[in-house]
Write a protein that binds this DNA or RNA. Structure first.
Lengths: 251, 251
DNA sequence: CCATCTTTGTGCACGCGTTCACAAAGACAT
DNA sequence: ATGTCTTTGTGAACGCGTGCACAAAGATGG
């Protein structure tokens, strides 16, 4: 994205294709589950099934990292967990700030998966003075005025934007100016950033629209097609206002 | 997904490439903004800039929809909004259910962008009996026991899963059995679904890991490279527990 | 030590997506 | 009406990603 993904054209980072990088976290998750069940080794076929991909693709992906498998046996789970973690840079701790503590921002702050993989919520930042000092997920919210100082003091290089769309670009500019070089954007806006800064976006609205497209297509085929399956018939409604509200977007 | 995206191999739906479909919502958003500012026409160059894509790509994307532009002038904003909306199936109303009303589920329910583009939250569903009847975002939460009836009564074909990972597959199975054919999955799990069902996933953890990879790469290049810019130095911390908690994932 | 069997690692071909570059189309001025 | 100028629509080339299919590698048993 991804789907999502902001233009990183032909920049195959250190020879590892972008598509492969995007799948490594998937493998890592499956491997971690196996590790917790104390499974010692796993074949490409099994692991591929668990990760929901083709086994040939998985093997090719791993081949970019090196030859970590044993022919006739499979992959050592623990070893592979370590190798992938290292490749993804998860052996170190990444402090993260979340800007915009509304419904979504608070949900993100409460998300347990943060700490699990080397990410740590270093600070929560919001523009509303009334929020300042109020603890969310055990972390006191700080005011936007101190953004630069917070970034600097904590050595933050990854920022999460969960503000309304109108504020996103401005927040983004300040984050970048303060030294942030990776941004995860939940606001429904296209952010423009200088070279060297990575942006990934997560947009609920876009995801739903893509699903709607396919849904419509299915309905259309069904109508013209053979089997007269049950056609879903949604009622129509007045169009709602176009919210400038924080959102959730996909890579 | 991308990035998400679940394997839809060579199924170019009605001739429109999947990559193009994924960008249509982006164009639509930019066009809507122009429409609100009463801009009558826009060139491919301007619109591409607003959507953050290449102008040639945009023109090719539009060429799949038909010839809606005027050479020497550009595109009629209102007309294009309508055409894209129609293509995406947004001229009709799509009732959506959200299953799993935790932090994230509640945030999604409160998200204003839902109503804006033809989506309507038809019901909120949670497994916790204590939640039943309690209103979230003005909509009373219903119990999982009634899931099938809710789907059927409202003619729902799109479901959003915001449950913990452990419950996701089970919820998914029930949704599909009840007639849902499109699923937006926020749980950090690979869902397996029968053919004909579309799944898109949004995973915060995966997005962060991808950013961490690039971040690490930048740091590495910096070290071996020329300019001795300020190297961010995050402190290390004890590894947190691997939460089974709801998440946020990108296509 | 040899044979067999499993599973990895990868060369190759194919298809999708992106980008360039330009001809065709139309607006607009004279 | 004719010429100029802008902008679209698209043919063609290229590169990335995917999947097949198989040879190489190693484990395992006799």
């Amino acid at each position: 994205m991804a789907t999502g993904r902001t233009h990183r054209p032909a920049t195959r980072s250190r020879g590892i294709p972008e598509a492969t990088v995007a799948r490594l976290p998937l493998y890592l998750r499956a491997l971690t589950a196996l590790s917790e069940r104390s499974v010692p080794t796993v074949s490409s076929e099994e692991l591929a099934a668990a990760a929901g991909v083709n086994s040939a693709k998985l093997r090719k992906d791993f081949s970019y990292l090196g030859s970590y498998g044993t022919r006739g046996v499979g992959y050592d789970v623990e070893y592979l967990v370590y190798q992938i973690s290292r490749e993804l840079g998860l052996t170190q701790d990444w402090p993260v700030v979340i800007v915009g503590i509304g419904n979504l921002g608070a949900a993100l702050a409460n998300y347990g998966g943060f700490a699990s993989r080397g990410f740590r919520v270093a600070a929560l930042i919001d523009a509303d003075p009334a929020m300042a000092g109020k603890p969310v997920a055990g972390i006191p919210v700080q005011h936007t005025d101190d953004l630069e100082k917070i970034i600097d003091d904590n050595g933050v290089s990854i920022g999460v934007i969960a503000t309304p769309a109108g504020a996103a670009q401005q927040v983004c500019d300040r984050l970048v100016a303060a030294g942030v070089t990776s941004i995860l954007n939940f606001a429904p806006t296209v952010l423009s950033v200088p070279d060297g800064v990575d942006v990934r976006k997560v947009d609920l609205s876009i995801e739903l629209q893509i699903l709607a497209f396919h849904e419509q297509r299915k309905a259309g085929e069904e109508a013209t097609g053979e089997s007269e399956a049950v056609v879903r018939a949604p009622k129509d409604s007045g169009k709602g206002p176009d919210g400038d509200v924080p959102a959730v977007m996909p890579a």
